[in-house]
Design a protein around this nucleic acid. Structure first.
Lengths: 190, 190
DNA sequence: CAAGTAAACTAACAATTGTTAGTTTGTATA
DNA sequence: TATACAAACTAACAATTGTTAGTTTACTTG
């Protein structure tokens, strides 16, 4: 039983929560222990190092995004539907792990051994995203504007979801996903 | 001559650069001194504390945004033009101080004495932004969608500009501002 | 009951942290 | 030439950091 529900997983989730509030560097192992109601040394019965925690949080999420993107790009939907799927992917993952998304966005540079691997996953993700946009421009489905600006604009919003979702509990996932897609794709001009 | 060009200002700008790369907590006074080519203790001839540097970076920027927003909301432009002005405001400030924008976005929670003041400025800024959107919905200038989602979507993109502007040197400010306004306001659907 | 094990503990470490005190150096001004 | 001052320096501090070693506690299982 080395999956969810273990003590290690509890520690990682608690760490993610603290990392969201103060960032990886500002959270001490004693902070984390206090939050868990134990002593700092006791943490090491379950995890190898502080770095080990960060790695678990970030790499898990980055791989989820990679898996999701692979499914989307190999589907035979049109461009608009692919973009809507990307929005849903971010809403889903962020809803399930709001705390972890903060680390993914803000603390990836503190990865040590896994930094290169993370950067590779991110770069591939962004390239896949741009390819979808470029296909949509060629097929005349979306406006012929700078693909990087389009991606940047959408992705910035999706990457910031972790800041915003916790405050909007009344809005369910599907509803948020649809609203966001509308605003991002159709704009707000009347 | 206590403004730009002083040694203190050099230190603050260098600090902002390091803070962008690793975050406030992960940058030590010795890191900063090394980057300046001096010893850590020498920094204290010019600044009061590490916290003092963070305060200078963040509060200066936050007040620039407040000033800009006050000008926009008291203008008698229509909603679309006000939104375009907000885009320009962010592009301008971010272009002039890319490093500082990283601290504003990611290290505000490490403010001590000035935290409350910062939060007040931010809250007011967001409320002004929402008011502009709500006015635009009432006057039928923009679509009747959730105002918070609209603000969140636009503001997320604008707040992420600091990550993106340094990589796009060929694109000038005005061009970027126009492109972004188009995508954010009119969407990408054809 | 005996053995094993998960999970906590105390105590300590070497390194690093922000900061202070006091001093030296070089340059500009009176 | 004497004075002042900006800006660097060395040396040290008390506190905090991540981590290790070794031990104790309380269940669970054979």
């Amino acid at each position: 039983m080395n999956a969810a529900g273990t003590r290690k997983e509890e520690i990682i989730q608690t760490a993610a929560k603290l990392f969201k509030e103060k960032g990886y560097s500002a959270v001490t192992m004693r902070d984390l222990a206090t939050e868990m109601g134990i002593r700092a040394a006791s943490l090491y019965n379950h995890i190898d190092s502080k770095q080990d925690i960060l790695k678990a949080i970030i790499i898990t999420l980055a791989e989820e995004f990679t898996t999701g993107m692979n499914a989307i790009k190999s589907s035979n939907s049109n461009t608009i539907d692919k973009l809507k799927s990307i929005v849903s992917l971010h809403v889903d993952i962020t809803t399930k792990n709001t705390y972890g998304m903060a680390s993914l966005n803000n603390d990836w540079m503190h990865l040590e051994d896994q930094l290169e691997y993370y950067l590779k996953l991110r770069k591939t993700y962004e390239q896949d995203f741009i390819n979808i946009i470029q296909d949509g421009i060629k097929s005349n489905e979306i406006i012929d504007s700078n693909p990087e600006i389009i991606m940047f604009s959408i992705l910035s919003t999706l990457r910031s979801l972790y800041l915003w979702i916790p405050k909007k509990e009344e809005l369910n996932r599907q509803e948020l996903s649809i609203n966001l897609s509308t605003v991002l794709i159709n704009g707000i001009n009347k």
